[in-house]
């Protein structure tokens, strides 16, 4: 009897176990990226840029070529690769400390130059690799090791909404936010990643998909509770959806018409 393969490891994903903690959704996001790269037939000319943070070892988990970047500099490294070889598909995989803290300058300018690269931005509201410090995306009141009494917005400001921030740039781009804490959300996330890579492959624009992720270890809760925490606490602050499409339209607010005295 002929067998039909209904589920297999994507070719772009390396056949190795990852170091991620139980319940962490980096693995899901890796898989979605790999599936998209496979389905678009891009794997052979894809170069990934790995960040510093929990996903620092991403270069071991994809079966594509990779360059490791210094903390926060992945968009700059990606720019170098893409400008040297515009025929390559270049994606940077970055966490919230990497992209939204130390690498804020690089990501803003990369997006503003309209580099034809794709950024997968994983937001789990905490520094994972270094043991649970406050991130720029840590929610108000959330306890971390460097805000032991909870994030005090009067001292450190509000969490940065990266997708919204980048969407304010005039340069055409595709910017979206997705989540992977339920299967249905993961399906939508994959759709957005597919659009992001397609825009790059077509040479259209810069693309970034922010993906809300979990950190059971540093949030201090079991994996199932962590997925509920995403729904209950993160999604309300970080709304899901598409924030910018490369239609070239300037949606900057217009000055209000002068009112007659």
């Amino acid at each position: 009897m002929a067998e039909t393969v209904v589920f297999a490891r994507p070719q772009a994903l390396a056949p190795v176990p990852t170091h991620y903690c139980p319940g962490c959704t980096h693995g899901v996001i890796h898989r979605l990226v790999a599936e998209v790269v496979d389905e678009l037939g891009l794997a052979h000319r894809t170069v990934g840029i790995a960040p510093v943070g929990c996903s620092v070892l991403a270069y071991n988990y994809f079966s594509t070529d990779f360059q490791e970047a210094a903390h926060g500099r992945a968009p700059a490294v990606a720019t170098g690769v893409k400008r040297a070889r515009p025929d390559l598909i270049v994606f940077a995989y970055q966490g919230d400390g990497d992209l939204a803290s130390i690498g804020m300058a690089e990501i803003v300018h990369c997006a503003n130059r309209g580099e034809k690269i794709t950024v997968v931005f994983v937001n789990n509201a905490i520094y994972g690799m270094t043991g649970g410090q406050m991130a720029p995306t840590t929610l108000p009141g959330q306890v971390t090791t460097t805000c032991p009494l909870g994030r005090d917005v009067s001292q450190v400001g509000y969490p940065i909404r990266v997708a919204e921030l980048l969407a304010t740039l005039r340069t055409p781009a595709f910017v979206a936010r997705a989540a992977v804490h339920t299967p249905l959300h993961a399906v939508t996330a994959k759709e957005m990643l597919r659009r992001a890579f397609r825009y790059q492959a077509e040479g259209t624009c810069f693309s970034l998909v922010e993906v809300l992720s979990t950190c059971p270890t540093n949030w201090g809760m079991p994996p199932v509770e962590a997925t509920e925490w995403v729904e209950k606490n993160m999604v309300p602050y970080y709304p899901l959806g598409v924030f910018k499409t490369p239609d070239g339209l300037d949606r900057a607010p217009r000055p209000a018409p002068a009112t007659e005295g």
Binding site: I102, M104, T145, T146, P148
Partner: peptide, 29 residues
């Protein structure tokens, strides 16, 4: 800014400085 293997220093200061009227800031870089 966080980096291993010295995170216990900023973490200690984050906890301890407010107790003595001091200020801890986690920089962006």
């Amino acid at each position: 800014y966080p980096i291993t293997p010295q995170n216990e220093i900023p973490e200690y200061m984050a906890h301890r400085l407010p107790q003595v009227g001091g200020t801890f800031v986690q920089a962006e870089s």
